[in-house]
Design a protein around this nucleic acid. Sequence first.
DNA 1: ATAAAGTGTTCACTATAATAAACACTTTCG
DNA 2: CGAAAGTGTTTATTATAGTGAACACTTTAT
Lengths: 193, 193
Amino acid sequence: MADKRSDTCRDQDEVGFRLKHLRTEYGLSQRQLSKKSGVANATISQIEAGSLNPTVGTLRKILTGFPISLATFFDRTIETGQEKIFFAKSELTELSEGLVSYRQVGGVRQGQAIQFLWERYEPGGNTGRHAFAHEGEECGFIISGELTVTVAGRTQSLKAGEAYYFKSDQPHTFKNEGVTPCELITACTPPSF
Amino acid sequence: MADKRSDTCRDQDEVGFRLKHLRTEYGLSQRQLSKKSGVANATISQIEAGSLNPTVGTLRKILTGFPISLATFFDRTIETGQEKIFFAKSELTELSEGLVSYRQVGGVRQGQAIQFLWERYEPGGNTGRHAFAHEGEECGFIISGELTVTVAGRTQSLKAGEAYYFKSDQPHTFKNEGVTPCELITACTPPSF
DNA sequence: ATAAAGTGTTCACTATAATAAACACTTTCG
DNA sequence: CGAAAGTGTTTATTATAGTGAACACTTTAT
């Protein structure tokens, strides 16, 4: 019983901490959140204080006050240390060398939802990286030059201002068959490096 | 009161459905899970039946019987396929009018994993779209011009070749404070339109 | 055939979550 | 200054979550 109790307390503390952090981040008072969510302010107070273990239903009701799902609520990192948000040109991590350059926005982070790349294909540059299929989806936008894209046997040459989007489980290759470098921005999910 | 009750029931149904699905997926009986987790089998039965709204603590205790977290428990990602792969400039769907232009790669599709946009901010253009936070992650790369980005109170002016990446549950705004149009490519997950 | 052991469900009872109202305190404003 | 409105907290009461024991039923085994 004593063990169970202490476990429960730690759990409550964690939920309370998450809630308090979320609420203050949005600049809401307990009473404002109470009014928005329809949950008594006393309940919110006790949850934050760790003296009350809310039901899933109540927590869900409280979260209607925020644009946040239960999954996100429990998934959020409540680190005080700030994550890097802005990246200078030189801070884009180079992932490759040679005729094809991949520079990644956001460094190589764990658990990233999107892999965002600034790619550059020199004339003749192509890739075996995407030769085989993998899970997820990917898309790209051509900034300059021309790129020949083949997806599931369908080939197309894309110029600046054009784009693509496909599911990565289809075999796909990229090649610059032009005479000028080709630059594009791509996004994949999940990261496959 | 009646309203509150019916809301609660729907919530309970959802939690119960998730739990039952998870449990059967792992081939456990209610009593086996009860023994593993230390939660009474009657409790599990009632949660699955939707007649009981568990506390976060109890649900967490139950989930110790599985190798998944609360966040994962509530997280459901459903993906759908699509046909169109290549997009001409004119095929990028315009989502907005006025000083800010959003052109979406891949049209407005359901269940898309990435929302890939070519955005253009005229001088003075800013957005209330991102005024409040939402779920997911987002990143962008500046192609031309200059854009002032504010995330969780941190403001930075980004120029061509620079980029950003942050979790969308932080409040964020964008504004073009320069004298030339700003073009950028952005990727969000999940789509928020 | 018929125990024995399994399954999920139901039902009083106890523990506790959720509420409204009062509390002590700080800030705002006339 | 002092009233009014804000903040988070505490408390008694009510509503309900969690429990153990019985239930009805199915499957396995001797």
